[in-house]
């Protein structure tokens, strides 16, 4: 038997555990990061029904209408409208059934009221079953707790506008948070593992070009051309990379060879034509003329 004055260690430890848990919850509540703009758009879009699909919301759907709707959501949020205002705008344009949370007015109200009635009935019946011989105070307290619970639920369901919203506007839009180096490193590793795969080489070369590392891309293009020497497009990309890094003289023979493989390769005609414009103007003019003729044949079908 412990002395009555001192609390038992179990109780102390229990209190400690509760404090640890509460501390975690408080950190989570206070430190929650504001949603990025993309997250906000997704959040709003996922409460809108895609009008041309069955059972899909706008955030997930791939239909053209849903794509346009996502753009509109992003536009309106950018303009500083609140998610509720955006939703109301869509309900105006498409009717109330575009909202996946039915509106709390008109008949839509029933969809919120009926669950509340169900809960209130269940709580009342439960309270009646467990009236018991408990003291009046406990009974009153229980009834009060149940009433408060159902009332809170009622406010949350029927009039969520009365509750404080989840924080203010989102922080600055972090545009994509691109991690280009990560992807490049992954590609480089893959190339090391399978040096003979031309697709990997090409993808890495494209990636390096796109991220402004043209010099590093040149050897990758060269390797790709070695692996697939008869591919005119690859040869052209290699030559193009060479001209961009200032090694134009090396590009010329490659392009000439490309044109012996495929005399009608338009990009190579254009590139070779412009590269030798100074050194060999006549030939350059002839090449560019051939290029223009090819383009005219192909028509204006290009986008």
């Amino acid at each position: 038997m412990t002395t009555p004055r001192r609390p038992r260690p179990a109780v102390l430890l229990g209190q400690l555990a509760a404090m640890i848990a509460v501390a975690g919850l408080i950190v989570a509540l206070v430190g929650a990061e504001p949603a990025t703009q993309a997250q906000q758009v997704r959040e709003v879009a996922s409460t809108l029904r895609c009008p041309t699909c069955v059972g899909e919301h706008v955030a997930d759907s791939t239909s053209p209408v849903a794509q346009s709707m996502r753009l509109v959501v992003a536009e309106q949020l950018q303009a500083g409208r609140s998610p509720d205002q955006v939703r109301a705008w869509f309900a105006d344009a498409y009717g109330d059934d575009v909202l996946l949370e039915p509106p709390r007015r008109g008949l839509g109200w029933t969809l919120w009221a009926v669950p509340l009635v169900v809960v209130a009935a269940a709580a009342t019946a439960f309270a009646r079953r467990h009236r018991g011989p408990a003291r009046r105070l406990r009974r009153t307290l229980g009834a009060a707790a149940a009433t408060v619970g159902v009332a809170a639920l009622g406010v949350w369901w029927l009039a969520p506008g009365l509750l404080p919203g989840p924080g203010g506007q989102a922080g600055a839009a972090s545009t994509g948070a691109d991690t280009p180096d990560g992807a490049t490193v992954v590609l480089e590793r893959a190339v090391e593992d399978q040096p003979g795969r031309v697709e990997l080489r090409t993808a890495l070369a494209h990636r390096l070009d796109d991220t402004g590392q043209e010099a590093a891309a040149v050897p990758q293009w060269a390797a790709a051309v070695r692996l697939r020497p008869l591919d005119a497009d690859l040869r052209y990309r290699y030559a193009f990379a060479l001209t961009r890094t200032g090694s134009t003289p090396q590009a010329v023979p490659i392009l000439e060879e490309t044109l012996t493989i495929d005399a009608r390769h338009a990009p190579s005609l254009l590139l070779l034509g412009s590269v030798i414009e100074k050194s060999d103007p006549d030939r350059s003019a002839a090449l560019l003329e051939r290029y223009r003729a090819l383009r005219a044949d192909a028509g204006e079908d290009d986008r």
């Binding site: 430890l13 400690l16 640890i20 501390a23 919850l25 989570a28 929650a32 990061e33």
Partner: peptide, 20 residues
Amino acid sequence: AAAGATACCAVGVVVRDPVL
């Protein structure tokens, strides 16, 4: 209780989502 409190605290600090 100790396990629950630890999990709650750890997830709260790392993920910053009170519900989770």
